[in-house]
Amino acid sequence: MSNGLVQILNKPMDRRTATQTIAAGLALGLGWLETSCSPAASAAEKEKAKLDWQEYFQGNFKLMTEDEKRATVERLERQHQIRTGQTVNIADTDARPNVLFGYAFNISKCRGYMDCVRACQVENNQDRRSEMAYIRIHEHKNGQISFEHADDEYFHEVPAAGHFYMGTQCMHCQNPPCVDVCPVKATWMEPDGIVVVDYNWCIGCRYCMAACPYDARRFNWASPAIPEHEVNPNQHYLGNRLRKKGVVEKCTFCVQRSREGGQPACVEACPTGARIFGNLLDPDSEIRWVLANKKVFRLKEDLGTEPKFWYFMD
């Protein structure tokens, strides 16, 4: 199945795709006309305009061939270089076979330091103006797990006496409601269980935000702003690459790290070891040990979302 004008243009022609190709040619031609006919434009400007047009007409990442994926991320790298003069490395690493990522959160160990929240922001190139955060740390009073009575905007020394802490973020549901509702298949679950968003394909309708029972998704209400020197250059197409305004984003279990065998930034940053991440299909993984030896539970299990995010206590 083909989609996206650039993909269609690169495909061998048959009768079925003929009309699509004509439409594509028209649209691309207009773009070319606009840039190439402008006598004032420099070569760099023309290249930028050309790449921007290619970006606008690119297809859905999930349906791209390996070559198309490679070409797409290389173009995005070049576009970033033209825009800012900086070099970033955008990976398109696929899910590894026999990997299904899962996460466990040790309620006994979390002390509410929120180092995970900060590490996540830095790692994932989130908007600094709105202080966007994928992780919320809820401060519960002893004696109840009641989120509406918890404090997730605390500003005092932690750990506070008589309180305990729980973090929420994307639960990477095995049956994700956000994926079902997306009208254009801009969000999906990867074979390794990570729920991702194609930021170039998202139309910004925010239906997925309404469908998520865990407040996992964030919207770029304005153009995200990150100081140039704070941009994390180690990126993944489906992860922490820079977003534009008007698209949805979310936790990706730091796909740019986890697919290279690393740990998500939140896990690495946690000073108390409350966060455990690993391959659910690997019988020797720490996450499997937790699931086998601790009394674990998940949040809002009654909704049938099958989160791959467990909580436990020592």
Binding site: N3, G4, L5, I8, T19, Q20, A23, Y56, N60, P183, V184, A186, W201, C202, I203, G204, C205, R206, F219, N220, K244, K245, G246, V247, V248
Partner: peptide
């Protein structure tokens, strides 16, 4: 919608 220019992502065929 946040990206009205990308609404062509809904068009059949494209």
């Amino acid at each position: 919608v946040g990206g009205p220019a990308r609404l062509w992502h809904m068009l059949p065929g494209l």
